[in-house]
């Protein structure tokens, strides 16, 4: 395999890797937000607390996708 082909393959692999890294956080953020909406609908007076916790949950879940995004550029 030539060096150029190896470079091209590396870029393609990085793309696939980022795609894989985005699956988990995607599902996770869906679960977090879905349950937060359910909590807000069931208990509107606790909406503020649910919202803060929701953002926290999103931030923690999202970190994995963002690390994947950074690695995509490093690779």
């Amino acid at each position: 395999m030539t060096l150029e082909a190896a470079e091209a393959l590396k870029g393609a692999l990085a793309l696939v890797g980022y795609g894989l890294a985005a699956i988990g956080p995607g599902i996770g953020i869906g679960i977090v937000v879905g349950n937060a909406i359910q909590a807000m609908a069931r208990q509107p007076e606790a909406a503020g607390m649910a919202r803060t916790t929701m953002f926290l949950g999103i931030a923690f879940t999202e970190a994995l996708a963002l690390i994947g995004f950074v690695l995509f550029f490093i690779a």
Binding site: A59, E62, A63, L66, I67, F69, V70, F73
Partner: peptide
């Protein structure tokens, strides 16, 4: 690390 990378990566994206 995640605190810094979260902000950085969001803004880069």
């Amino acid at each position: 690390v995640t605190l810094a990378v979260r902000l950085f990566a969001n803004m880069v994206a």
